[in-house]
Simulated scan of single mutants.
Amino acid sequence: MASSNPKSHFHARSVSLPSKPNPLIPQAEEHLRRIKSSGATACSFSSVSNTISSVVDFYDSVEDLLLFPDTQHAFVQEGGDEVLERSLSLLDLCSTAKDVIAQTKENMQELQSTLRRRWGDDLALRSKIEAYLTSRKKAKKTIQNSLKNLKIKSIFSSADQSGMTTVSMLREAEEVTLGSIESLLTLVHGKSRSCSFFGKLMHSKRVVADEKASNSELEKVDSAVHTLLSHKNGKSIQMNYVQKILGEIESRIHDLEEEVECLIRRLIKTRVSLLNILNH
């Protein structure tokens, strides 16, 4: 009888040991670090597109993580309802970005069509160019309002800590996504991209200096179109230059539009999964 008690106690302690950490959590953490690293140099349409693609991949991994009962329980206990509420605002911002990109692409295509026709009537050409600039001004106003409403709360002091929870990873992913959309909107606005978000995130003075020195691709287009309107350097030369720039940017704008659409679908799917967890 006496010899059986130690075994009984040992067995009771063994079943109460904490479960083995989910191997998908450190994988997701590493994915986030890579996203932030790529986002720190996101100063062109191509680089922003790549960063958004990486964000989509991260949410794919989160979807796998949310299949585990332990993860679902932790999500509820850690205050996942806050993440769910903020996800709606994130979706709204992404939808705004998608609409702005679509409108910008349409405006660029119309301008290209106009320049390819090489209107003989200067008044007709001027009218088409002014219509493009007016549409760009409208897009910039929309972007300025979105950026004004975009309030990013820095939570990256916890980024180097071990054992990140599902909720903390989702919060951090939200911040990185917001930073990507901020970069996207700033670039589409057509002004030099500020490093206020990713530069601060990576604590890199070199990255900040490099990005402040770069010009937005659409900034170059707008400048060339204004010059074309004033005929400062010769209409024919400027028309060729504008067409060249538009041709180079068109495919990158298209890729960016597809990535944002993919991100929106991914965010909706994740939101549905989170809703299901909280409602069970």
Rank of each mutant, 00 (worst) to 15 (best):
S8T: 06
S8Q: 02
S8F: 07
H9M: 13
H9N: 02
H9E: 03
F10Q: 00
F10M: 01
F10P: 00
H11C: 04
A12I: 06
A12R: 00
A12E: 01
A12D: 00
A12W: 00
R13D: 00
R13M: 01
R13Q: 02
S14K: 07
S14M: 01
S14G: 05
S14W: 09
S14Y: 04
V15S: 01
V15K: 02
L17D: 03
L17P: 01
L17T: 00
L17Y: 02
P18L: 08
P18S: 05
S19P: 02
S19T: 04
K20S: 07
K20F: 12
K20E: 10
K20C: 08
K20G: 01
P21V: 05
P21D: 01
P23H: 01
L24E: 09
L24P: 06
L24C: 12
I25N: 01
P26F: 05
P26K: 09
P26Q: 04
Q27I: 15
Q27Y: 05
Q27E: 10
A28D: 04
E30Y: 10
H31T: 11
L32F: 11
L32R: 07
L32D: 03
L32K: 06
L32W: 05
R33Y: 13
R33P: 11
R33L: 13
R34I: 01
R34F: 06
R34W: 07
R34G: 08
I35M: 11
I35R: 05
K36N: 09
K36A: 15
K36T: 15
K36W: 05
K36G: 13
G39C: 14
A40T: 13
A40L: 15
A40E: 04
T41P: 12
T41D: 15
T41K: 15
T41S: 14
C43E: 13
S44Y: 12
S44D: 15
S44N: 14
S46L: 03
S46I: 00
S46H: 12
S46T: 10
S47Q: 13
S47F: 02
V48P: 04
V48H: 03
S49T: 07
S49P: 08
S49L: 00
S49F: 01
S49G: 11
N50Y: 09
T51R: 05
T51A: 08
T51S: 06
T51E: 08
I52R: 04
I52C: 12
I52S: 10
S53E: 15
S53Y: 11
S54K: 11
S54M: 08
V56N: 14
V56Q: 14
V56Y: 12
V56A: 07
D57L: 07
D57I: 09
D57Y: 02
Y59L: 05
Y59W: 09
D60V: 05
